[in-house]
Design a protein around this nucleic acid. Structure first.
Lengths: 324, 324
DNA sequence: GTGAAAGCGCTAACAT
DNA sequence: ATGTTAGCGCTTTCAC
């Protein structure tokens, strides 16, 4: 309630002096400074952030656009982005697109109106153009949006190679992989390209089933996986996202297919769920905390006027489990 | 970049007229209005939200304090709160306390500084006092913070009774329940009180193990559950949060304990995970979308100056599974 | 060192 | 119907 003017009046000084005393900028005599601080506390003075924003032209808020907070991958990514931003003094505003492109556009407008200082986009229901020509910083997660927007993503190609090597070493000859929408050539598709390349180079046969992982209900994937499992009986290895891997394993157990003896399963992502099954699922782990940290650092650099690299590739790793 | 003044100058009118034309307030001739809108578009005019905030004394942003976004329960709650707020024209700022009370206090300060319009608190690492005496609206989720702060929570007592009834009907005589920290008398504890009361009234024996569900790593709970399972061999029924129930079931399967024949398990929360096991877990479902919607409506009411009820209790329901 | 004053960009009351 | 002007509460020159 108390404004800077009341503090100034009470202290018998000008508002400028109060501002300097409170923010530690410019010269203020120790004496007066102490008095001002005291009065500010006594009056329970709280600076008005809106006014401060208007004058400083920044809000201290960064927007984060994700496809679905409820999805464990995004929940985790969001968590670590929030932590990173917080450590740099920024707050996190979320936009959960849940497939509705309006929501994303709405958020971009919010940025244009300077209600937030920048956006980290990890969802892509909109064309890239929506983000080009923005004056404020934008960082893209898992998508190439052109040279003006830095991109952070896992080294999916490496992940695909790791998966292929694991299955090859385990003796797989006839495998299927589920996932990868080849239209957009997103970074994530790269893992399926590489997987196929390496497997085939070693003489194995690969069947690719295109499907997306925009999670609806998990149980949806159970049915999908089960129907494919019925279809491919001669298969000795499967490479798919963790959720898929989980249901594959469940199906195999239920139908007396021995894992890993008769069927090897390797996942991708490294979600908690892979550690909740018995046996644990062997999977390629994305390093979400690092992905998030780099996303944030990119953003901070841009806010400071520094130009980050165009692309950051983060190593994946293999989580040993009992399914390969 | 273009400000309202430039639009005004270009259109040969005053800034007031432009403001009215753009916001649809007050009288503006159709003719001039059309011209202004055209010019605004041509100049790519975007209203500055900070300035607007300062003058209107609101930001259109609501803060949401949760213990851990990555936890599926909170992720889901957050998702539906975000959707609700969005539908009312508000954006969602998140504060993930992850047990650090500073973070929560920091957020309260943000509110005091009028950087956000209100807070929905679903985390409680701070004393209630921190929220009392705030001029802006606060809504509490799953905690009684005194008469001045409306509270939204599941009807845990009902949930405890449902669970007890299920187990009793299934013939349980000797059960254990895990969870409930009797110190704080949080709404959630109520389910364990009621569970015990009903079970004992029917002549069953109840052992209560106090523990909290501030999730660290899921696997942490696997170990806890396993150690308790080893301990209680004569038990014929278990009531616990879904995560615990999941690991109980896993343990039972691994150790040849037949579920539900020899052991009945009933969970609480209604998380996805209960539908990922085989059999699905019988559990008491919290209606998160409704809890979220009411939280939001409470907030909106308060922002409008309406006084909401002091307490909103949301019904839970039984999800039939194969563990009871 | 400190006070006065000019913005920051918009809204709204008040003239005209 | 429209222009002018006074805030909104703070930061930041620029004199003194």
């Amino acid at each position: 309630m108390a404004s800077i003017r009341e503090v100034a009046k009470e202290a018998g000084v000008g508002v400028g002096t109060v501002s300097r005393a409170l923010n530690g900028n410019g010269y203020v005599a120790e004496e007066t400074k102490k008095r001002i601080l005291e009065i500010a506390k006594r009056l329970d003075y709280t600076p008005n952030e809106m006014a401060r924003n208007l004058s400083s032209k920044r809000t201290g808020i960064i927007g984060i656009v994700v496809p679905d907070i409820e999805n464990p991958f995004w929940g985790r990514y969001l968590k670590y982005v929030e932590i990173g931003l917080y450590n740099h003094g920024f707050k996190s505003l979320i936009c959960n697109t849940i497939g509705v492109s309006n929501r994303e556009q709405d958020f971009i407008d919010f940025l244009k109106r300077k209600a937030i200082d920048g956006i980290i986009v990890a969802s892509h229901s909109l064309n890239d153009e929506a983000y080009l020509n923005l004056k404020q910083p934008v960082v893209s997660f898992e998508r190439d949006m052109g040279p003006s927007i830095p991109q952070v993503c896992s080294n999916h190609g490496q992940g695909g190679r790791f998966a292929a090597e694991k299955l090859l070493k385990a003796g797989c000859k006839q495998v299927i992989q589920l996932g990868g929408t080849y239209n957009g050539r997103t970074p994530a598709d790269e893992r399926h390209h590489e997987f196929k390349r390496v497997m085939e180079a070693a003489g194995a046969h690969v069947t690719t089933i295109e499907m997306s992982w925009d999670m609806v209900e998990y149980d949806h994937y159970r049915k999908i996986m089960e129907s494919y499992m019925e279809l491919f009986t001669k298969v000795d290895g499967i490479f798919t996202a963790d959720i898929g891997a989980y249901f594959c394993l469940a199906f195999a157990k239920k139908n007396g297919i021995k894992v890993p003896e008769e069927l090897k399963i390797i996942g991708f992502d490294g979600l908690e769920i892979t550690r909740m099954s018995d046996p644990n699922i062997t999977t390629i782990v994305q390093d979400i905390p690092v992905l998030a940290r780099i996303s944030v650092e990119c953003m901070i650099d841009m806010l400071k006027g520094k130009k980050p690299k165009a692309k950051y590739l983060v190593d994946v790793s293999v989580q040993e489990g009992g399914t390969v």
